[in-house]
Every structure is written in structure tokens, then in C-alpha cells.
């Protein structure tokens, strides 16, 4: 009895939409994707919809409480907190949005390469990666940033570099898994070239693991970027940024809490959104994230 004979192979575009649909069919995925989408949209159109100019200071209205004019009050320089919160993610999303794909790309390529080479070279490389990962990240990054300065042109490559290293592990492990499977052996036995085997058999199967990994890396990187800003090594004033805003408003927390709470809501809603989406993406692609090492 023919059960269903109407399966159609999805092209890349159809496959993309079917994955998105699958994500949205899960409540957590729908919420996550909506959060991420609104943040990105806000980053794009924010400057056109905010009520105030983010640099306008007002000495008469420093640290004011929420009011009709300033819904979330003002900061210690009298700038509108709502405006600065709405704009505070732009820099973070821009920097991490470029650095994450870079990290996944270089980490993925290196990981796949060493996973294929195997043997002693691979062992040595993994020792180095492990040693590197055992150092606290913030220290390593501070060293680089202090050496080269804090502009975007330094932050992007630095973040991409550091966050690519754990990706090596994932890509290498995924490569090992796939290489051991019979369909790769079958391709070898048929006599396909090395390049064909990598391109047709290996990469399509490693790709999904890397996509999920990339989504996770993004949320970690956002946290790192905000921490750097908080410490004064990220965005330079007066550009609004959540990390920086929290650092500035922290001293006035007791009588003007919105200065800290508002950017915190901004940052955490984005990170939660990314995490929820990544989980749903993993489920939609059939990858069990529970098994992934939490590096």
C-alpha cells in the first residue's frame, strides 16, 4: 500500500522556509524568533522612531523619574533612557552579527580540516585548543584590546578569533562522526576524489551542527561584547550601548533604577531570544543539543 507518494524534495529556499516554519510551530521557537526579529528590526529603524536625540543632554532633568515626557526617566546627563535603550543594541548587533559568521566560518574550516587529517597533527592541535579554552576569555581579550585599541575594526576580528576556537572542537567532532559513517566509506570505495567526498558527503552533514553552534556562539558573543563595554573597552561614549549604560547608571541604582533595568531588559531579551531560537533550530534540524559540550 503506497502511503504517501507526494513527497517533494525541497530546494534550498523551500528548505529554509520549512525550517523556519518548524521553528515557529514550537511555542518557544516562535517567541525566540519574534524576539530576535524585533531586535534586528529595531536596530535598523530605531533612529527614525525614537522620541529624542540620544546625545541631547538636559542639565535641568538629570536622573529624573519616569514621566509622560520621559517614559523611563533620564540618565545622569539628562538624556532620555528610553531612547538610549532602544538604540543601545545597534552597535552590539552590528559587531556580533559580523563576527559570529566569521567565527563559525574559520573555526568550522579549521575543525573540518583537522578532523579529516586526523592522527598526530590533530592531537597536537586539540591540546592547544584545550589549553586555550582553559584560560578565562575576558583576560585574553583584554590583552588584545589593550594592545590594539577599541574600535570596531579591532573588536570584530578579536571576537571572531576567540569565538572561532571552540567552533573548531565542534566542527572536528562532527567531522569525525560523519567520516566514520558507511556512506563516506561507500564513496571512498566507489573511488570518488577527496574533494568530492568533502563537498558532497561531508559538508552537508556538518553544516547543520555548525548552524546551531553559530546561533549559540552569537548569544555568548553578545554577552562578551556587553561585558567589554561595561568595563569600558567596547563602545565609546556618547554612542548608546547597553553594557555602557549599565556601567554608567549602576551608581544611581538606588534612586533611579530604570537606568539599569531598561538596558538589562534589552540585553537579556535578545539573548533569551537567540537561545530559544537556537534550541528550536536544533530540534528542527534534528540535532540533539543536549549532547553538545558546553564550551
Amino acid at each position: 500500500m503506497a502511503v504517501t507518494s507526494t513527497y517533494r524534495r525541497a530546494g534550498p529556499v523551500q528548505r529554509f522556509w520549512s525550517v523556519i516554519k518548524d521553528i515557529c510551530s514550537r511555542p518557544s521557537g516562535a517567541i525566540g524568533l519574534a524576539l530576535v526579529f524585533s531586535h534586528v528590526a529595531l536596530a535598523l529603524i530605531g533612529p527614525f522612531i525614537v522620541p529624542y536625540d540620544y546625545t541631547t543632554m538636559n542639565a535641568a532633568q538629570m536622573l529624573s523619574q519616569p514621566s509622560a515626557a520621559h517614559w523611563l526617566g533620564t540618565d545622569h546627563l539628562g538624556r532620555d533612557t528610553l531612547t538610549r535603550t532602544l538604540l543601545g543594541g545597534r552597535e552590539a548587533i552590528l559587531v556580533t552579527g559580523i563576527a559570529t559568521p566569521l567565527a563559525v566560518l574559520w573555526g568550522g574550516l579549521v575543525g573540518v580540516f583537522f578532523g579529516l587529517v586526523g592522527g598526530r597533527v590533530d592531537d597536537v592541535l586539540m591540546r592547544i585548543v584545550d589549553a586555550f579554552l582553559s584560560l578565562p576569555w575576558i583576560l585574553k581579550m583584554l590583552v588584545l584590546i589593550v594592545t590594539f585599541g577599541t574600535g570596531i575594526e579591532v573588536l570584530i576580528p578579536t571576537l571572531a578569533f576567540f569565538y572561532g576556537i571552540p567552533v573548531i572542537r565542534i566542527a572536528r567532532a562532527a567531522t569525525h562522526d560523519v567520516v566514520a559513517r558507511d556512506f563516506v566509506q561507500a564513496a571512498r570505495a566507489r573511488g570518488h576524489g577527496r574533494f568530492t567526498i568533502i563537498w558532497q558527503e561531508l559538508l552537508p552533514n556538518v553544516r547543520d551542527a555548525l548552524l546551531v553552534e553559530g546561533a549559540m556562539r552569537w548569544s555568548w558573543m553578545l554577552l562578551a561584547f556587553s561585558s567589554l563595554s561595561f568595563l569600558g573597552f567596547g563602545v565609546s561614549p556618547p554612542t548608546p550601548d547597553w553594557g555602557l549604560m549599565i556601567a554608567d547608571a549602576r551608581g544611581f541604582m538606588s534612586f533611579s533604577p530604570w537606568g539599569v533595568i531598561a538596558p538589562m531588559i534589552g540585553l537579556s531579551s535578545l539573548i533569551i531570544g537567540i537561545n530559544l531560537s537556537a534550541d528550536a533550530l536544533a530540534k528542527a534540524l534534528g540535532i540533539d543539543r543536549a549532547q553538545k559540550a558546553p564550551v
Binding site: 559513517r181 558507511d182 556512506f183 566509506q185 561507500a186 570505495a189 566507489r190 558532497q200 552537508p204 552533514n205
Partner: peptide, 16 residues
């Protein structure tokens, strides 16, 4: 010379 494996889940690429 052609080889057929025990488990087709393993010997057919799930992405093709």
C-alpha cells in the same frame, strides 16, 4: 567491484 553495507541508514547520505 561494488560494496553494499549492512545498514542502509548508515550507507545512504541522509542529505542526498
Amino acid at each position: 567491484v561494488q560494496l553494499i553495507f549492512q545498514n542502509p541508514d548508515e550507507s545512504l547520505n541522509p542529505r542526498q
